[in-house]
Simulated assay, not measured.
Amino acid sequence: MQSVKTNENRIMLITGAAGGIGRATVKVFAEAGWAVIGVDRRPFGEAFPSRGLFIQADIADPEQLERIFEQAEAFSPTLDALINNAAIQIAKPLLETSAEEWDQVMAHNLRSVFLGVKLAHPLLKAQGGGAIVNVSSVHAICTSANIASYAASKGGLLALTRAMAIEFAPDNIRVNAILPGAVDTPMLRASMERGSLSGGTVLDRLENLARKTVNGRVAQPEEIARAIYFLADNNQSSFMTGQALVVDGGATARLSTE
């Protein structure tokens, strides 16, 4: 049985901190007493936790990624958890997706995790172990038209999660993925604006999407954040590694022919 560490001494780093799920995750961890290092290419605003550190940078740029972890190490020589949450989405038919757009999605959603984990590993190992939570998507296991690059990046992230879990187990570093379904975030609403689902207003499209889940609604960001916290907290999920936690309101449980 591993020793229990108090929340006041725990530190996490999350990418995509200024997005819908990211902001909710920052709030959940901070309220639980963790110190939070947030990273985003957009400004976070004045509401970032006072005990934490916000770094505005683009994780798709390997040089900026190195500087992120230099600043993180200066803030704290150890990490208890790394949350790879940042992602972009390009919604268009595969045949209309350019090589540049494909590479852009992979650089943000997949390559940044590969490079970031290599930089975070010494900080997690110095702590004596920790947790990595990769925010994948239900699109890793079942997808739809006109989102191939995003689905491929999230499927790759799920496979990478399993590989990292195996390689990092000797260092007492657990690696799991969370696969959210529809979440009411700016990214989802932007996809509604682009007409990814038929219907009238954005609200009409969200309601139509909600009806497709077993629960009959889309998730709120805090619901995903609490699942992320569960996977990151060694006091709750110490025997989980290499797993995919689907949080989708039952959407993938229902047959498409039903």
Rank of each mutant, 00 (worst) to 15 (best):
A151E: 10
E100V: 09
A72F: 01
L79A: 09
A159M: 07
E73F: 01
S136F: 12
I37R: 02
L82V: 06
L65Q: 03
A151Y: 02
N85C: 15
A145F: 14
A151W: 06
D58L: 13
A47M: 05
R111L: 15
P49C: 10
Q104A: 15
R42Y: 06
Y150S: 12
S112E: 11
L110D: 04
L79K: 02
S76E: 07
V133C: 14
G45R: 01
V39Q: 06
V138Y: 06
S137D: 11
Q89S: 10
L94G: 10
S144A: 15
V117W: 02
L115E: 12
K92I: 08
I90G: 05
V117Y: 04
N146P: 05
D80S: 10
E63P: 00
A72R: 01
H139K: 04
A47T: 04
K125I: 01
D61K: 00
A91Y: 10
P77F: 15
P49Q: 03
L79Y: 01
A159E: 03
V36R: 06
N146T: 05
M164C: 10
I68A: 09
A126W: 03
P93S: 15
G130R: 13
T78F: 14
L94Q: 11
E100N: 07
M106W: 05
Q56S: 11
P77C: 12
V138A: 15
L95K: 07
E167R: 00
W102T: 04
K118A: 15
P43A: 08
V117A: 15
E63K: 09
L123S: 05
A86W: 04
D80N: 13
P62K: 02
A159I: 03
Q104F: 05
Q104Y: 05
R42G: 00
V113K: 08
T78D: 07
L110Q: 05
I68T: 02
N146A: 14
F44C: 11
W102H: 09
L94M: 15
T161V: 11
A87P: 00
I68P: 01
N109H: 08
P122K: 09
A86G: 07
R162H: 11
N84V: 00
H121C: 09
D103C: 14
A152Q: 06
S136E: 10
I90D: 12
E70D: 08
M106R: 04
Q56P: 02
